Amino acid sequence: MCNHVGHHSVPSIYCILPPHMLKEIAKNGTPQQRSVAVDTLSTDHTFRQIRSVQAALLAPKRGGSVTPVPAVPSAHRSIYTANNTETLPGKLVRSEGAPKSNDDCVDEAYDGLGATFEFYLEIFHRNSIDDAGMPLTGTVHYGDKYDNAFWNSQQMVFGDGDGTLFNRFTIAIDVIGHELTHGVTEHTAGLAYSGQAGALNESVSDVFGSLIKQYALKQKADTADWLIGAGLLASGVKGVALRSMKEPGTAYDDPVLGKDPQPADMAHYVNTSQDNHGVHINSGIPNRAFCLAALGIGGYAWEKAGRVWYETLNDSHIKPTANFKTFARLTVSNANRLYGASSAESKAISKAWDTVGVL
């Protein structure tokens, strides 16, 4: 189910596809679709157990030697193929500066990693995921018709999808941005992956994943689609994306996938023990708050609303166990500091959190 997350410094696994969606497929799909969903859930579970054993060995030791950071930050991308096995990282097929391959997955992964690096550098002067020039690694063609993509604290991994419900997982730049932002969160706020803190962790990844797409397309807040994973759902599936930030709960309603379960406000908050107490479900509430704030402020969403959210991630007052209300208050505090307490920006952010019932 791909939801293992250890302590702040321990490698973790974050998947784009929530387990509730895979469980719906395992229940409602054709025999082949059910088989693929069960295999994906099983692979995620096995991989999670292997990661927990490896975590202590792979976790970077604090206080050790530090690789010197070049004076001018630049991307260092390496794309591998697992050739439909579950071996990571696999065979190197494209490295930084190499020409395009004849494989869409390879080139989409390369471009998505690059777009994410560029966004964080250009907008927030952040040098890669860890702000210290971390090389970006991606593996494509992971598993057999694997219906997921994930970040494991070291690299991105993409499945090919089953072709009937999901297309290849490299197809959506916001999915790549979403997953890599889990790494940014690990290196900043370190939000725990359970309950409201976990839903904030997921929401932050959706926020910056969407901003990375908007930045690449040079879209203003009012022209963006605010969808996460548009293009991932195969033709014939009744839906437009995995999630909608503007209208949580409306991304899909399909006989096999079920209905998008995201609430749009606190009145409909979902109390559940599944999926680390609903991290992929209740993230709809802070997602909508950000979208409303960005629309209220206007212009390019990354310039002001995005700046406030990024400052909040880096705020010394944020704790790994932060809940929605704490996070919301910190965004208002940071907006006040950046733009003034009576500014239109602060008012738009306060109003957005009030609209979703958090403040």
Rank of each mutant, 00 (worst) to 15 (best):
V66G: 00
P68G: 02
P68W: 03
V69R: 13
A71P: 11
V72T: 14
P73I: 10
P73A: 07
A75T: 11
H76E: 15
H76A: 15
H76M: 15
H76R: 14
H76V: 15
R77S: 10
R77P: 06
S78T: 09
Y80A: 09
A82G: 12
A82P: 05
E86T: 14
T87N: 13
L88W: 11
L88H: 12
L88P: 08
P89L: 14
P89W: 09
G90N: 09
L92V: 07
L92Q: 03
V93Y: 06
R94Q: 07
R94M: 02
R94N: 05
S95R: 01
G97A: 04
A98L: 01
P99C: 00
P99A: 02
K100L: 07
N102R: 07
N102V: 07
C105S: 14
V106I: 11
D107A: 05
D107C: 07
D107Q: 03
E108D: 12
A109Y: 06
A109H: 07
Y110S: 05
D111P: 01
D111A: 10
L113V: 13
T116K: 03
F117E: 09
E118F: 12
E118R: 14
F119G: 00
I123K: 13
F124S: 01
H125Q: 14
R126T: 01
S128T: 05
I129Q: 04
I129Y: 05
D130C: 04
D130Y: 00
D131A: 01
A132E: 10
G133S: 08
G133I: 03
G133A: 05
M134G: 06
M134K: 15
P135E: 02
L136H: 06
L136Y: 07
T137V: 15
G138Y: 11
G138R: 10
T139P: 13
T139Q: 12
H141A: 10
H141D: 09
G143W: 02
G143Q: 05
D144A: 07
D144K: 11
Y146H: 08
Y146F: 15
